[in-house]
Design a protein around this nucleic acid. Structure first.
Lengths: 211, 211
DNA sequence: GCGATACGAGACGGTGCCGTATCGGAAATG
DNA sequence: CATTTCCGATACGGCACCGTCTCGTATCGC
C-alpha cells in the first residue's frame, strides 16, 4: 500500500496496437464489488484474488491502476450513486428523499457491506480514508446541514437544536439498522418517511393535539 | 485464522515449575488494546506485533491462547464494561443512563476505535463475529427493548412505534457521531440527555404547548 | 539442589501477497 | 504482413506473518 496519487488511473492511451479491453476493466470493478459483497474486508482484498475473480491477469490490473489503493479508491468512487435531486417544496419531503437515498445505498447488498467496511476499515488505510471522507462523506453532510438549516429558516424545524445533532438524529437510525442489525429489513420503502416523521413528531406519548 | 474453540483459553495450570506471569498476560491484553487504540484494524493485528508491543515472546502468547482468533475474542470480551444498573424510576432517565453507557464506552479512546472496528471488520472474521454478536450485541439490544416496552406500558412513550425502530432512534445518533464523525466531541456529559429528550419531544417546530 | 515449567528472543519452514517481468497468442494500425 | 499494444497465465524476488521450536535463563515445588 503506497501513496494514492491525485491521478488515480493511468491514462496514456496509445493509438496503435490492440486497444484495452473495456470488458476486462468492467470485470475487474465487478470483481471487487463481488468480493466485498461476499463479505470480504477491504484490507483482505488482494490483487491476486481480484484477478482470479475477474478472470483476468494481474498485469491487466496493473496496466490500469498504479497499485491496490488506486484501484480500490477508484472502485469506491464509481460505486457511489448520485445524490438525489431535492424538490425543495417541503423540508420534510427532502429529508425523506435524502434518507431514502441512504436506504437504497445501504440496501444494495454490495453497498451495504461496503458501508460497514468503509466506516471502520478505512481507518486503517489512511490515504484511502482521507480521500473518501473528503470526496464522499463531507459533501453529503454539508448537503444535510444546508437542508436542515433551510428547515429551521422556514419554521419547519425547531431553532434550538444543533444542526449536526439534527443530522445525526435523522441519519443515525438508518445507520444503526444497517450496521448493527445485518438481518434487519431494509427494503421497506416507507422506512425513511417513518423515521423522519417520528423524529419530527417525537416519541413521547402526548395528551395534547399535535398541531 | 482457524476455528475459535468454545474454550478459548488453554487452562491447564500445572502445580510444579515456574508459574505463569500474570504481568505478562496483562501486558498482552494491554498491547492489543493499545494497538487498536492507535488505529490498527483488527485484521491488521499480528501476533508478532502484539508480542513486540507487550515486550513478550511469541511463545508466551501461544502458551495462553490457541491462536490469534482466540486471543482477540478473549480481549474483546474482557474490554466490555458492565451494563449500567437502571434506577427504574423514569424510563426517560433509564434511557439517558443507557445512552450514557454507550457514550462512555465510545468515549474511551480504545473502545471508540474498537466499536468502529467491531461493527465492520468482524464481518470478515465470521467466528469472531458470531460469538461477539451473540454475547455482547444481542443482550444489549434485548435490554433496550425491555426498557422501551416498559416506557410504552407506563405511558411515557407512544404505543404506535415499532420497538426496534425506537431503539434505533435512540442509539443511532450516538452511533452516527461515533462512527461517521471521528473528530466530533463525545465528551459532553449532557449529550445523552439531549439526544433522549430531543427524540422524545420531536424536532418539528410547534406552536402549541408541549403538554 | 533438582526437575519442571516459565520467561524473552528469535530461528525456522511454510504460506500468501505485492508489484515486476516474461511468455505465446490476439487484435488493432498502417 | 510488420509493428505495436493488449491479453491471460504464471514465474519471480521480496516481504510479512503464522505457529512451532530451540536457545539460555529464571522461578517455582519438593
Amino acid at each position: 500500500m503506497t501513496t494514492v496519487n491525485e491521478k488515480v488511473l493511468l491514462e496514456r492511451r496509445p493509438r496503435r496496437g490492440r486497444p484495452r479491453s473495456e470488458a476486462a476493466e468492467q470485470a475487474i470493478v465487478e470483481a471487487v464489488l463481488n468480493l466485498l459483497g461476499q463479505g470480504s474486508s477491504l484490507a483482505a482484498l488482494s490483487i491476486e484474488g481480484i484477478a482470479a475473480e475477474a478472470g483476468v491477469g494481474k498485469a491487466t490490473i496493473y496496466r490500469r491502476w498504479a497499485n491496490k489503493d488506486a484501484l480500490l479508491l477508484d472502485v469506491l468512487q464509481r460505486a457511489e450513486e448520485p445524490e438525489p435531486t431535492l424538490a425543495g417544496d417541503s423540508v420534510r419531503d427532502d429529508l425523506v428523499a435524502s434518507l431514502e437515498f441512504l436506504r437504497r445505498t445501504a440496501l444494495a447488498r454490495r453497498s451495504r457491506t461496503s458501508l460497514a467496511v468503509f466506516t471502520a476499515e478505512l481507518r486503517a488505510l489512511p490515504e484511502l480514508h482521507r480521500a473518501y471522507h473528503a470526496q464522499v462523506i463531507e459533501p453529503r453532510r454539508a448537503r444535510m446541514r444546508d437542508l436542515l438549516a433551510r428547515g429551521v429558516a422556514l419554521g419547519e424545524i425547531r431553532d434550538d437544536i444543533d444542526l449536526d445533532l439534527l443530522g445525526e438524529l435523522i441519519v443515525g437510525p438508518m445507520l444503526s439498522r444497517t450496521l448493527l442489525r445485518p438481518e434487519a429489513p431494509l427494503d421497506d420503502p416507507t422506512l425513511s418517511a417513518t423515521i423522519v416523521d417520528t423524529v419530527l413528531q417525537g416519541v413521547a406519548a402526548r395528551k395534547a393535539v399535535r398541531h
